[in-house]
Each structure stands twice: as structure tokens, then as C-alpha cells.
């Protein structure tokens, strides 16, 4: 699928900056929650096949915790905050002071705390994006799931699925300390949102 006909590299760079600002603010929020510095990788912006997207977190069957928010407003899309099970446990013990995170499954209380952490981080991601673009973007109530990555991420691909077999993913990884907590933000704007995002930032977007 050809998403951008003209100035493709420049447009990808603009989206990289979009990811940078969103995830940068979320990393700051996380850093405040943990009271520790958080490192963030340069966002990756890629047009990927559906299968490749699950590969980004270790494959379709990889077990992950994911907080999912549907973004509504001017530039709708899907936002995921993804953690490996070990990272979810460390995060819970640091932020919520839940130290007895043992056993296979997290308790209701732990899941609820994790959902709230995801909500705070995703909220700061989105609100900084909305400020940056002057577009209205607001999240739906977050939902948390622990399951196979493929099953979870397929929810973010439905809008692109109507257009083709790949999706544009803005992927940012952040790390804490000795890489004990590694998390990923996946923003997958709906195909219709790109002209709006570019227009709001003054990037010419012809009738492509």
C-alpha cells in the first residue's frame, strides 16, 4: 500500500516527531510516577504488514499486557501501551508499592492499578499530541488485556484492514534503569487521520 505519494521521507519524519512528543510526555509522566529517570528510544515510523506488527513485540503468540485506548475526535486512531509480563510486575511493585507480585496471574487489584498507570501514560501521550497539533483527540475509557500479542494488536488494524494489508505504526520504546522496565507505545492513526495531522502541522498534503 502506498500511503504517501509525495515527500514520503519528510512525512515519515513528521510522524516520528509526533511520536517523539507524545511518548516524550508519557515518559516524563512515568518518570514522575517512578521518581526515576526514563530513557526513550527514537520513535520508529513504519508501514508494516499485519504479521510484522505482532513481530515487534516478539510474535503473535507472545504473552503481553496491553492497555488499549481508542482515540476519538479530529484524528481518530488506536493507542496501545504494551508491557511484557515481567515488566508489568516490576512496574507494579515500583509504582503501586505492590511487592507481592508473585504467581502466574495478577490480582484484580494489580490489574486495576496497571490499567490506571496505562491510562495516565496514554493520557499524557494524547494530550501532548492534541496540544502539538491543535486537534481534538480524546481517549475512550482504557481497557486492559493480558493475552497473545496478535490477538490484542489485531484490534488496532481493523481500520487499516479496510484499505489494505499493512498499517502505519508509530512505535516508541522506553526503558528504566537496568532495563528492568521496558514498555512500548504503539500509535496507529486511522488512515483518514493522516491528512488532518499533516494539515494541522502545516505540512502540505495534496489530494493523494
Amino acid at each position: 500500500m502506498e500511503l504517501f505519494k509525495n515527500q514520503k521521507d519528510f512525512k515519515m519524519d513528521v510522524l516520528k516527531e509526533v511520536g517523539n512528543i507524545g511518548a516524550g510526555n508519557a515518559a516524563t509522566a512515568l518518570s514522575q510516577l517512578l521518581n526515576k529517570p526514563i530513557d526513550m528510544a527514537v520513535p520508529k515510523v513504519q508501514l508494516l504488514g499485519f504479521e510484522e506488527i505482532a513481530e515487534k513485540v516478539g510474535g503473535a503468540e507472545e504473552l503481553v499486557y496491553a492497555v488499549f485506548l481508542r482515540v476519538e475526535g479530529d484524528a481518530p486512531g488506536n493507542l496501545f501501551f504494551i508491557l511484557a509480563p515481567d515488566a508489568a510486575r516490576s512496574l507494579l511493585s515500583r509504582v503501586a508499592g505492590i511487592s507481592e507480585v508473585s504467581g502466574e496471574e495478577l490480582s484484580e487489584m494489580e490489574l486495576s492499578a496497571l490499567n490506571e498507570i496505562g491510562n495516565i501514560l496514554a493520557g499524557s501521550y494524547l494530550s501532548s499530541l492534541a496540544d502539538f497539533t491543535s486537534l481534538s483527540m480524546y481517549p475512550t475509557v482504557p481497557a486492559l488485556a493480558m493475552d497473545m500479542a496478535g490477538a490484542i494488536l489485531s484490534y488496532g488494524l481493523l481500520q487499516f484492514g479496510q484499505m489494505g494489508d499493512d498499517a502505519l505504526l508509530i512505535d516508541t520504546t522506553f526503558l528504566e534503569g537496568q532495563n528492568e522496565i521496558e514498555g512500548q507505545f504503539f500509535l496507529i492513526p486511522d488512515p483518514e487521520s493522516f491528512p488532518k495531522i499533516f494539515k494541522s502541522l502545516g505540512v502540505p498534503f495534496e489530494d493523494e
Binding site: F50, E51, A54, G59, A60, E61, D147, M148, A149, G150, A151, I152, S154, Y155, L157, L158, G161, D165
Partner: peptide, 21 residues
Amino acid sequence: GMADLNVGSHDHVIRTTGLGS
């Protein structure tokens, strides 16, 4: 794969991973 199909005969196993919706 996702949004994919295939066929096989007696000595094959056909698999798809990570079905959600």
C-alpha cells in the same frame, strides 16, 4: 497469516496464531 488462507493434505498441519476478533 492474518487475512490469509491456505490448504493442505493428509500429512499437513495448518496453523494460525493469535486470533483475537
